[in-house]
Design a protein around this nucleic acid. Structure first.
Lengths: 126, 126
DNA sequence: CAGGATCCCCACCGATACTG
DNA sequence: CAGTATCGGTGGGGATCCTG
């Protein structure tokens, strides 16, 4: 399970609530576009257009949608510069950067096992 | 980007192919149910029903579908015991267990930042 | 018990057009 | 340039029934 079972707590309600919250967050974060956005941001500050250029295949809509979600969860900071034309910049927050580290691990894993996976697929499909 | 840019390679084709493959794997793996299945399996061996009981809210269909996908990618091993009633067991493979480590990191991250996220959401929604 | 097959609905997502 | 709104198609995913 996502949440550790903490044994007999005085009040199970808190555990339950934290559990469902964890699941919710998990659903938000364990999504292709969200992960790619965080990975694309890295340590940089990027504008909306910059992000779109960086993430191949993402649509305008998915980008805004996921950026809002990440901002809501406090993983991305959105700063609007009151100029014309508008200039909006996105940066990872502390928690966002922490998450990025684990995503890096996921990327590393992917590359380390590319060969194994490709071979396994070939075997399976045949 | 998911794939590191390796600078001017002799043949860009290989890089491109590996890149798209990496994206494909990423899409397979960066999905809520797949991650929960891998996390549920852990070091244990579980049967189909056991997995269904373990993963709250997963449907029959999603479980089979994701198990097939994980098997195809060589992350879980499926062993069928020729008895009646059927007995099918699932275990993580080496790469699967390696992936599990990074997913553990993701779970840890989630729990460490529950508070921050909840607060941020509240701020955002208000 | 494991898991395919089918039906069906809803949510995701892309495309497009419009505002500040 | 950044962002919202709307519409329509496609596929995700649940419920159910059926087989070995």
């Amino acid at each position: 399970m996502v949440t550790k079972q903490l044994g007999g707590s005085a009040d199970d309600g808190d555990v339950r609530r934290a559990d469902s919250l964890a699941r919710e967050i998990f659903s938000d974060v364990a999504n292709k576009w969200a992960l790619l956005i965080i990975e694309a941001l890295g340590e940089r500050t990027l504008r909306f257009g910059g992000l779109r250029d960086e993430i191949e295949g993402i649509s305008h809509k998915m980008l805004t949608q996921n950026l809002r979600m990440l901002e809501r969860n406090g993983l991305v900071e959105r700063t609007v510069h009151p100029v014309v034309p508008p200039r909006v910049e996105y940066t990872l927050t502390g928690p966002g950067r922490a998450l990025r580290v684990t995503i890096d691990g996921l990327c590393d894993w992917t590359h380390r096992h590319l060969g194994h996976i490709e071979a396994s697929r070939h075997r399976f499909d045949g």
